[in-house]
Amino acid sequence: MRKRKSLIILLLLPLLLAGCQSYKKVPYLQDALQEVAAGDTGTADMPLYDARIMPKDLLTIVVSCPEEPELAIPFNLTVTSPLSQENNYLTNQPVLQQYLVDNKGNIDFPIIGNIHIGGLTKSEAEQLIKDKLQPQFREVPIVTVRMVNYKISVIGEVAHPGTFTISNEKVNIFEALAMAGDMTVYGIRDKVKLIREDNQGKREIITLNLNDSDIINSPHYYLQQNDILYVTPNKTVSKNSGISNSTTIWISVVGTLVSLASLITTIIK
């Protein structure tokens, strides 16, 4: 009986050791967890992120002036929306005209004409348009710019890969992963790829280490519109480490090992 117990322990020991070893690869921001455990909770001051307007962005621009509302009307173009049925009647509602930023970063704005806003933040674009509109108004107009098609994509070893539209035009790496259901256990956390294209059309692939807490201070922590986050899969590493997200597989493996141990013990006897 003692030999049997010893044999079972020997068979299960590599599995248990592998499980402990594999855990080290799973948590995000590992060094930060260690610092918190040691009582160090230092933080770094970072400027607030503000998205910049890129070619092919779709914008809505609303101009208003409470003192002179009639003067703002020519700058708020509308288009007819598709027909919809309400109370057995077909209706359509006007919606604001959207402005497509061309490859040179320009938009064609009513009355004013071409305005170069590529590379500007929303607040910078609002101020620029406001300055150009000022001669048309006696009072300072209010200009509101919104990005309609701010989207990012998350693919690879995540639970729900896909493309996601961001309504507040601000999303960081971990929020993007949360939208995609987080990484699976087969995702390599220290080799996440970020595919990005700048406003000049230059593409680059950036490798991110999400195990390193300094990622939150990285210029790539916040995603830009049209960014693609690719979680590199490595099933071989996961299998060697003994990680599995299926309880059935665990039970099957343990059951097989126990049966094998019993068979070997019977043969030895």
Rank of each mutant, 00 (worst) to 15 (best):
Q224T: 10
V79G: 01
V192Y: 10
Y221I: 04
Q225N: 13
M46C: 02
A261Y: 06
S246M: 13
L223S: 01
T247V: 07
V231G: 06
I249R: 11
S153T: 08
S84M: 10
V79E: 15
I73F: 05
A44P: 00
K24W: 12
D108K: 07
K104A: 00
I166L: 06
G156L: 10
V143L: 03
I9P: 02
E139A: 14
T207P: 08
N240T: 07
P141L: 03
K239G: 12
E197I: 05
R203W: 01
V154W: 15
L77T: 00
G156I: 12
A72E: 08
L194I: 07
V185E: 11
G242S: 01
I195Q: 04
G242K: 02
I267C: 03
R189C: 07
Q225F: 03
I251P: 03
S213D: 14
T248R: 10
K191F: 11
G242P: 05
N92R: 08
Q200F: 07
T265E: 14
E67F: 15
I243G: 02
I155F: 04
D57Y: 01
N172P: 00
Y99W: 07
I206D: 04
R138D: 09
I188M: 11
T163A: 06
Y49L: 08
Y49I: 08
T265R: 07
E169Y: 10
T256S: 13
T184P: 00
E126H: 01
K5P: 06
L96Q: 13
A38P: 12
E124V: 02
N209I: 06
L13K: 02
D40Y: 05
A18C: 13
M46Y: 11
V158F: 09
K170L: 08
I8N: 03
N92S: 15
L133P: 14
A38R: 12
I73P: 01
I73R: 04
L17P: 00
G119A: 03
R138Q: 11
T121M: 10
I8H: 06
E124A: 08
M54I: 04
I53L: 05
C20L: 15
D45Y: 14
V258I: 10
Q98A: 05
V158S: 05
P74M: 04
M183F: 12
S244Q: 01
E67I: 15
V79T: 09
V192G: 08
G181E: 14
L16K: 05
I115L: 13
R2N: 07
D198W: 09
Q136D: 05
A72F: 02
R138P: 00
L7S: 11
G19M: 13
Q93R: 14
D102L: 12
L77P: 00
T266Q: 13
S167R: 12
T80C: 07
K3P: 00
K269E: 15
I53N: 01
D227K: 02
I228Q: 01
D57Q: 02
S218G: 07
T236G: 06
I9A: 09
D57V: 01
E157Q: 13
L257C: 10
N92C: 06
A44S: 08
G39C: 11
G119L: 07
S6F: 15
E157G: 05
P47V: 00
D190P: 08
V36H: 08
V237A: 11
Q21Y: 14
F137P: 00
N209C: 08
I129A: 04
D214G: 08
K193F: 11
D45T: 07
T265W: 15
R189W: 11
M54G: 06
T266N: 10
